[in-house]
């Protein structure tokens, strides 16, 4: 009799537990991106130029070095920041510098930016500076796109593949 009572008790108690598990296993839904908007992603990794120009060691300096350590050029490891400017329909969406990675700042700069935009026809212009120059840009890319809502548009950059790559 007691056992039957407890079995019934189990059934009653497990119903809300099952409902809780069943519900929270996939609900409530979560919106992390406005469904009415498209997304532009600027994402690439790029090693910029070294901060200082290489110079040739003098004969005296070479003589002072251990024979196995002698090399003709003295190059600093540190690279300059990568600067990017992204314009859409004449409006600035992004203008930012990205420092090189690594303790000695000698690694590639990693860029990963997501920018929600209105869907529709857009003129995109993206510029990149990876040298010590004070003004101007080393690379530039332009593209005309027609974005749907929730569409992802990726701006990639590869120095050895003609610079900017739009997908």
């Amino acid at each position: 009799m007691f056992k039957l009572r407890y079995i019934l008790g189990q059934i009653i108690a497990f119903i809300p537990f099952a409902m809780g598990i069943g519900y929270f296993s996939d609900s409530p839904s979560y919106t992390y991106h406005d469904p009415e908007k498209a997304l532009i992603m600027v994402s690439f990794s790029h090693a910029s130029e070294h901060k200082d120009e290489c110079r040739r060691f003098s004969q005296e300096e070479l003589s002072a070095m251990a024979p196995n350590m002698r090399r003709p050029m003295d190059c600093s490891r540190e690279r300059v920041p990568v600067y990017i400017e992204l314009m859409m329909d004449g409006q600035n969406l992004l203008s930012q510098s990205y420092n090189p990675t690594g303790l000695a700042k000698d690694g590639a700069a990693s860029i990963y930016e997501s920018i929600p935009v209105e869907p529709g026809q857009h003129e995109i212009s993206v510029k990149l500076r990876d040298s010590s120059r004070e003004s101007g840009f080393d690379y530039e890319g332009n593209v005309s796109i027609n974005l749907d809502a929730k569409e992802l548009f990726v701006i990639d950059f590869r120095k050895d593949h003609n610079g900017f790559n739009f997908q």
């Binding site: 996939d26 839904s29 997304l39």
Partner: peptide, 14 residues
């Protein structure tokens, strides 16, 4: 589909 942002997902909240 990596070309499309899912925007809304049904999370497992556990």
């Amino acid at each position: 589909d990596l070309k499309i942002i899912p925007a809304t997902v049904n999370l497992d909240w556990f």
